[in-house]
Design a protein around this nucleic acid. Structure first.
Ligand SMILES: [Mn+2]
Ligand SMILES: [Mn+2]
Ligand SMILES: [Mn+2]
Ligand SMILES: [Mn+2]
Lengths: 224, 224
DNA sequence: GCATATATTTAAATTAGTTTAAAAATAAAG
DNA sequence: CTTTATTTTTAAACTAATTTAAATATATGC
């Protein structure tokens, strides 16, 4: 990459902005960044102005923020590092998937290229992290996958869980309790019109009712 | 530990002060800290005053700094983390021993207790890092070892390399080139009075002359 | 004991990042 | 269109950590 040295804070802003812009057709508002960073809107305005002057992003008063190619490159590398470390924490250290994010957030700041290269090899070049999120390769390219949320499946549809959208500890623990993890097979037994919940069969073993909220937070790949 | 949250800078100061005081019968001077931290004496004075007010160390004007029990506990945990990560980088990722310190310096700031506990188990609870330095246990206790520098050995003495004192990249690469690593067998073939250098036999294979400086930077355990 | 050298502290200024409160711009509603 | 609500920016002040220069202590030499 360039020989620009980012502060930890700049790195956190870049990652937050990248994630927000992925949903908001390329632009992130001051308030959205503020709530994602748990800071004030005033702090965000000040920070993005400084980051704009460092050419990490494009900023126009009252119009929000867009990452430029430099910002995207950095953000992608940060996401790559964070997700590789998540794989390490889960697969090698055996940490539960609801406890990965805190540590990986810190680990993503580790700034030695050789470490990340060797870590990737050590882990067998995984393409997805323990929550099913794609891990960009060294060039920043993501492996795309056709997936949909469980919410969109219909009665008798069968599918495989490929990712979680919500990564809160409580949601992940709940899934654990239901016996759901990445790769679980599910089948829609019943669609309940009343509240859009669904009765689901998990791994041909257990049946359970999922609220529409839960269905929306689970990404699946439909089978046949 | 306590629920005191240290800044990265405070952590780096604590580690530096701990290492300095290990050599200077318990006390670290402003200038020594400054040169170790690559900063100005004025910055050190200011910082240690703030750290003293946070009860991390004892400071008396013009008298230098001593760590108190809180500071020692933190410093020890930092050293523990740094050395465990060094083992990981070397043994699991295969990084050369002359490239470990940069990355481990950053990794030592990772602040999730569960990560360090699981990392230790994953590594098999090593007692020494790749440079032969002892790794304190979770309670902060170091495993001591009787060792001496190669400088103190005499003709016909045989010994095993247990640690390096100097961890500069150039020294470590030089040792690599000589075929010396932790565990190597050596024998003093000849003491050269002129400059206190020594001719050494390495692993009963190669003979080489080491300057007195090199001898001082190698710690060994004497055999019989 | 005095002069000089060295080490340390203080003072003043700077930078990154933050907060709260006030001002200004934009969006929404009637 | 105009009033109101929401969002964003600016202003002023603060903290952590730093720098350089000046002041003060301490140590050393004679
Ligand atoms: Mn962070
Ligand atoms: Mn500003
Ligand atoms: Mn550090
Ligand atoms: Mn101060």
């Amino acid at each position: 990459m360039q020989d620009i040295q980012l502060s930890l804070t700049e790195e956190d802003y870049l990652k937050a902005i990248f994630n927000i812009t992925e949903k908001n057709r390329g632009t992130a508002s001051t308030n959205d960044i503020a709530s994602s960073m748990q800071t004030s809107a005033a702090a965000v305005t000040d920070m993005v102005q400084r980051m704009a002057s460092r050419k990490l992003l494009d900023y126009e008063k009252y119009k929000g923020v867009k990452l430029n190619s430099v910002g995207i490159a950095f953000a992608t590398q940060l996401i790559r590092k964070e997700r590789l470390w998540k794989v390490f924490l889960h697969q090698k250290l055996g940490m539960d998937w609801d406890k990965l994010n805190d540590a990986a957030e810190q680990l993503k700041h580790i700034n030695t290229i050789e470490v990340i290269r060797k870590l990737e090899l050590f882990l067998g070049s995984p393409k997805y992290d323990p929550h099913g999120e794609p891990i960009p390769n060294a060039d920043g390219r993501f492996t795309l996958r056709n997936q949909t949320s469980l919410f969109n499946l219909r009665k008798t549809d069968r599918a495989k869980v490929v990712a979680v959208r919500n990564q809160s500890s409580s949601f992940l623990q709940f899934l654990d309790d239901c016996g759901i993890s990445i790769g679980s097979q599910i089948e829609v037994l019943q669609e309940i019109d009343f509240d859009l919940s669904k009765r689901i069969m998990i791994n041909d073993q257990t049946s359970i009712v999922f609220s529409s909220k839960i269905c929306q937070d689970l990404y699946v790949k439909q089978l046949n």
